[in-house]
């Protein structure tokens, strides 16, 4: 497939998903039957309800971490020297942390704080914040590498030879060339966040089941899955597949367009 075709397929998949999540939740005719935990609701209703929340949460977290990543990368490129070193090492450190471990530790801290009556954040916000804390390192590293690669390009050398300042180069030459790349990174982060959220929800540290996401839905139904109730899980898996493929195709297309 050409990048263009990939992008088109990815984009249409995502639009389709958006339409699905916006679909009125009172679709009662569902080929997968009724939910087991909430017998008055259909599987489709639960899955699509989860889709919306998952996408919103993942979009928010991906947006935040991407923004944080580009800011840090810019700061590193601008300041150079020890600041650059510190930011890079910190990003590498966070990149190497086992995500689940950090998320569980944060859930533990939140739970303790909550039990001691210190604070009681909204569960969606708390999960979003935890995911953001571990999520910024990857984009930051990617952007920094990209900025460095661009910085070695000939047009930068030419601009520098013409007497341009570093800030000027950064703002005038490098940033405009990063736009597509930033978007691509953002798009690739979204499914990653969705899967991370689904995993911690499965382990019981994520969202409560009354604020359903795709992950909590599968997580709270895993006993039924093991007993062969595939109808509960297949729609969710299908949605996850579409999300991953859609975002990945679009992201890759953008990435390829950037590199061309």
């Amino acid at each position: 497939m050409t990048p263009r075709a990939k992008g088109l397929v990815g984009l249409s998949l995502l639009l389709f998903l958006l339409a699905l999540s916006a679909l009125p939740r009172w679709v009662h005719a569902c080929p997968f039957g009724m939910d087991l935990e909430f017998p008055t609701r259909t599987v489709c209703e639960r899955a699509l309800g989860g889709l919306g929340r998952s996408m919103a949460l993942a979009g928010g977290v991906a947006g935040l971490t991407t923004a944080l990543g580009i800011l840090l990368a810019l700061a590193a490129a601008q300041a150079k020297g020890p600041v650059d070193f510190a930011i890079t090492r910190l990003s590498e450190f966070f990149f190497a942390l086992p995500d689940i471990l950090v998320l569980i530790t944060m859930a533990f801290l939140l739970k303790t704080a909550r039990d001691l009556g210190f604070m009681d954040p909204d569960p969606t916000l708390a999960v979003g914040a935890s995911l953001s804390v571990i999520g910024w390192a990857v984009p930051a590293l990617m952007f920094r590498a990209r900025l460095q690669a661009l910085g070695e390009a000939e047009f930068v050398a030419a601009s520098r030879a013409l007497g341009a300042g570093e800030t000027w180069i950064l703002v005038r030459h490098l940033l405009p060339r990063m736009k597509g790349f930033v978007l691509a990174v953002f798009l690739l982060r979204v499914p990653a966040v969705i899967f991370m959220e689904s995993t911690i929800s499965f382990l019981g540290f994520g969202l409560p089941p009354t604020t359903p996401s795709l992950g909590t839905y599968v997580g709270s139904n895993y006993r039924n899955l093991i007993l062969g109730e595939w109808r509960i899980v297949l729609p969710v898996w299908g949605l996850l597949l579409l999300i991953a493929v859609g975002f990945s195709l679009l992201g890759k297309a953008l990435m390829a367009g950037e590199e061309a």
């Binding site: 499914p191 899967f195 995993t199 499965f202 599968v218 997580g219 597949l241 991953a244 990945s248």
Partner: peptide, 14 residues
């Protein structure tokens, strides 16, 4: 790889 990425990691264990 895309197919594997698109599957929540706990599915394989299940």
């Amino acid at each position: 790889p895309d197919l594997i990425y698109a599957t929540p990691p706990f599915f394989f264990a299940l």
